[in-house]
């Protein structure tokens, strides 16, 4: 397999006797939208956690842009441009939306001077235009913790964009979002990928959303990689159907 932006090779992660990820090998090519599906407990979030350095892997290698990242710490990996959002949305609740955005600027080249400086107007402008992009401009001076769950999800997405990542790992971006907002969200994800060239690797339970969004989908079951392919093939794949319906 040729070198891709994200290469996961033979990754195994155990929690005591439970094998959460068993010898997983997959690749995410640059500039694409790749999906990751699987029944509850199949190891999707564990795989994401392994990729971003939240816990060490027991076996295997994870390479991002040709660089081995499996031994690196969470903030170091984030600064390489590999960013994740959380399944349980996480924002800074006691700060305003604009402040949430300002602190999300890239931290890759941070000198002591920038650590103690105020934000230049460009940063605030960018923060406000991204808040406009996700439809939160009018709420920009409210405390992020006072927003509804769906709005927090949008804010978290905007914060990720503010960080100018090369690749985003999105953990269930549509979970808990009002069905009428889901279409708008999918549209924004597609525009992010098309206009900004950010690679997206998406965990999703909403089948209609992921089939519409991703170009290629991997399916996990019981910690193992079941199959991978284009959405229409995955939908017809008997192994995937069995995994979801509970056949062993």
């Amino acid at each position: 397999m040729a070198e891709q932006q994200l290469m996961i090779n033979g990754v195994t992660k155990r929690f005591g006797g439970v094998v959460a990820n068993d010898d997983i090998t997959l690749a995410v090519p640059q500039g694409r939208i790749i999906g990751l599906i699987g029944p509850n407990g199949s190891g999707k979030t564990t795989l994401f956690n392994s990729i971003v350095g939240y816990h060490p892997v027991d076996n295997g290698s994870i390479r991002f842009e040709g660089k081995e990242i499996s031994g690196m710490r969470v903030p170091e990996i984030a600064r390489l441009g590999l960013l994740r959002t959380f399944q349980q949305t996480r924002i800074y609740g006691k700060m305003t939306c604009v402040e949430n955005m300002q602190i999300s600027v890239p931290h890759t080249h941070e000198s002591f001077r920038t650590m103690f400086s105020k934000y230049p107007p460009e940063v605030t402008e960018k923060a406000e235009s991204l808040l406009e992009f996700v439809g939160l401009y009018a709420k920009r001076h409210l405390m992020a913790g006072d927003l509804s769950f769906g709005q927090q999800k949008l804010l978290e997405f905007a914060m990720a964009l503010m960080n100018e990542p090369k690749m985003m790992l999105l953990d269930e971006p549509t979970a808990g979002v009002n069905p009428t907002l889901i279409n708008g969200l999918i549209e924004r994800l597609k525009r992010t990928n098309a206009d900004l060239g950010i690679t997206l690797f998406v965990i999703e339970h909403n089948m209609r959303a992921i089939m519409n969004l991703a170009e290629h989908i991997y399916c996990l079951a019981h910690g193992q990689l079941l199959t991978g392919g284009p959405p229409d093939e995955i939908q017809k794949d008997q192994k995937v159907i069995d995994a979801y319906l509970g056949a062993q």
Binding site: V52, R73, V74, P75, A78, R79, L83, R84, F86, R90, I91, Y92, G93, K94, M95, E99, Q102, I103, S104, P106, H107, T108, T114, M115, F116, S117, K118, Y119, M159, N163
Partner: peptide, 20 residues
């Protein structure tokens, strides 16, 4: 930036780490 960074650590340190 310093003030916002330490506020972010107060509100959610895991998130702050994940944001680099």
């Amino acid at each position: 930036r310093f003030g916002l960074a330490i506020n972010a650590i107060r509100d959610d340190e895991d998130k702050a780490e994940a944001m680099g």
